[in-house]
């Protein structure tokens, strides 16, 4: 299988990926905040052995102290692990699928944090896949679970299904037309939330957003997954409408070709400039204004993230080296036919 960001799935012009995350704890052990290192080791080995037995050759086991900080940051940029997990420099277990689309963080916030990402809009398939691994583990251990409040988790905010389903969306047209604040309110009223994927509060280059369920208690998995799917379809329809209006405007067409011009010729690309331009080019690609395959833009968005760039291109982590390496990678990918 290929990495999620190298392919385009259903509704792929707008939906880059779908993710499912399940949180589980094993009844026999106290939660990670109270678990000693011996206990952590036991839990990690137990889960690793179960997953290896049930899915031979599909997964590998990584101890995070064998990775560099940059490698861990890169994994977080690619949504394989959480930023918290990336930030820890003690020894932690990570079970990773060979395509890197599925990862199980061990003894992080909870004993088991299983997350899987698939390209395009496919919450049912992603849930089914995550559920398969979940079931294999549940056959061998007793999960901490209560009939009244569901899966018992270290943070009360995960109780219930302990499942988050999310989609990563590219919404340049809705964003340009200033429609997002209103949209965010209605998404919120439906029990979901929308937030920028890249960036910190006011600085959010690139119009990439993630939509996920806010609550996990009192709503079953199927309903959450179905709701996510219908909300996403609804947002995608709105983005399509907004996009068809925008691309009639010659000024927008000009912006798309100019962005393409810079990306295919620049010698230095800062992270923020790159994110802004690739977002515009991706918009041109999604609307058929410009002939650049969506796969390429998806791959560049992930490959252009700073830590990932350092890891895959082997450059040091100064912005000058990165900006040059980024520009070179973008030129090569975007120009090749």
């Amino acid at each position: 299988m290929t990495k999620w960001y190298n392919t385009v799935g259903e509704a792929g012009d707008i939906v880059l990926s779908t993710g499912i995350r399940l949180v589980r704890n094993i009844e026999d052990f106290v939660f990670p905040c109270r678990l000693d290192s011996e206990g952590r080791q036991k839990v990690s080995q137990l889960v690793r052995d179960i997953v290896f037995d049930a899915f031979p050759d599909e997964f590998c086991y990584i101890e995070t102290d064998t990775l560099t900080y940059m490698q861990r940051l890169s994994m977080a940029e690619r949504n394989i692990i959480s930023p918290e997990f990336a930030g820890r420099d003690d020894k932690n277990g990570l079970i990773l699928s060979s395509d890197e689309n599925t990862g199980i963080m061990l003894c992080e916030q909870d004993h088991i944090r299983l997350q899987t990402i698939m390209p395009g809009l496919c919450p049912e398939q992603a849930y089914e896949y995550a559920g398969k691994i979940d079931k294999a583990i549940a056959e061998k251990v007793k999960y901490a679970y209560s009939d009244s409040i569901g899966y018992l988790t270290q943070s009360p905010s995960d109780l219930g299904t302990a499942m988050r389903c999310s989609v990563m969306l590219h919404l340049p047209a809705l964003s340009d037309m200033g429609r997002l604040p209103r949209l965010a309110r209605s998404i919120r009223s439906l029990g979901f939330s929308i937030r920028p994927v890249y960036g910190v509060h006011s600085r959010t280059p690139g119009d990439f957003y993630s939509v996920s369920n806010r609550i996990t208690l009192g709503i079953d998995e199927k309903t959450a997954v179905n709701n996510l799917k219908s909300i996403t379809s609804h947002i995608a329809a709105q983005e399509h409408n907004a996009a068809s209006l925008l691309i009639e405007d010659e000024a927008w067409q000009d912006r798309i070709f100019r962005a393409y011009g810079i990306l295919s010729t620049a010698r230095l690309l800062s992270y923020e400039e790159f994110m802004q331009l690739i977002s515009i080019v991706r918009f041109g690609s999604a609307t058929g204004v410009i002939d650049v395959p969506l796969e390429k833009t998806n791959m560049l968005i992930i490959g252009g993230q700073p830590a990932t760039l350092s890891v895959i291109k082997g450059v040091d982590d100064t912005s000058t080296s990165r900006n040059a390496a980024r520009a070179k990678m973008v030129r090569e990918v975007i120009r090749e036919r």
Partner: peptide, 21 residues
């Protein structure tokens, strides 16, 4: 109360056939 505040609900809805009594 914390669970209520966070989720707006306090009871789990199980996915599988076993209905919560």
């Amino acid at each position: 109360p914390i669970i209520e505040q966070t989720h707006g609900k306090s009871r789990h809805t199980p996915s599988h056939s076993s209905p919560v009594k």
